Computed example of a mutant assay.
Amino acid sequence: MSEARRESAPHQETPMERAAGQTMLECHDLTRTYREGPQDITVLDGLALSVAAGERVAIVGSSGSGKTTLLNLLGGLDRPSRGEVRIAGEPLSALGEAALGRFRNRHIGFVYQFHHLLAEFTAVENAALPLIVRGLGKKAAEARAMALLEKVGMAPRADHKPGELSGGERQRVAIARALVTDPSLVLMDEPTGNLDQHTAAGILSLMDELARTTACAFVIVTHDPALAAHQDRVMRLDEGRLTEQPREGA
């Protein structure tokens, strides 16, 4: 063996290589029933879903089919009537409210349809907030947030508050905020709904990069056929159940 070969640095596994074959999100028998007057209304009925590390899954369905309810259950914002959700192997039902909050901060990124940015904070402060809540210093948190704002094309607007931003700009800040913690799972509710075609393409490119280089999994609720078709799998939610949709040309 040559000296050069012996002295070469050992291969450093990427996060994606370390997570190869890992199931990042798994749910079984997921059921959510609401009481409405004398009746029980079942929105989700024994639903099952498995998403691997680095995989991107789109969920489509008609309005009122339960897509947002599903996202809330997957993110631990609501508790199922029956069934189980596991993220990175952790059953959410085993976590109390405080522990669940800490788990969400470390493992789950959310992109809501209506942004939920804090009006009194600038774009960079909003994007950095999850890291500050975790306990990271303000300077380090904002440096990481600026890197994400740069990737979504919002660095020039970093010092502006939400009231000074357009709907599309606020959405890009929300996306940066969701990604700033390097989450295991990102849940997105119509993430490109307020974006022009060029900006939406940039967000898709960023998602492609993260899926390729990290173990982050994505679950994306959308009415946009082009956004859904860009993902690895498309699932349709109908009558409380998920069914996989065939790929075009398959």
Rank of each mutant, 00 (worst) to 15 (best):
P38W: 09
E13C: 13
L118P: 04
L165H: 04
L117N: 06
I87T: 04
L237Y: 12
E3N: 06
R212L: 08
L131H: 08
A145C: 08
T214C: 00
Q39T: 11
D224V: 00
L227T: 02
Q171A: 02
M24K: 12
V124D: 15
A145V: 00
G167S: 08
L25H: 10
C216L: 08
E17M: 03
K138E: 07
R134K: 14
A140C: 04
P15C: 08
G46V: 05
L73V: 01
G76H: 15
P10Q: 00
D78K: 09
H223T: 01
D238W: 13
N126C: 10
T23A: 10
C27V: 00
T33L: 07
C27W: 03
R157M: 04
D182Y: 08
T213Y: 10
Q12E: 05
H223A: 01
S50G: 08
D182E: 14
A94Q: 15
L70W: 12
G137H: 05
F103G: 05
T243K: 08
R6I: 10
T122C: 09
P246I: 03
N105K: 04
L149A: 13
G96T: 06
S184F: 01
A200D: 12
E55Q: 14
D232Q: 03
G37H: 04
E142S: 02
E97C: 08
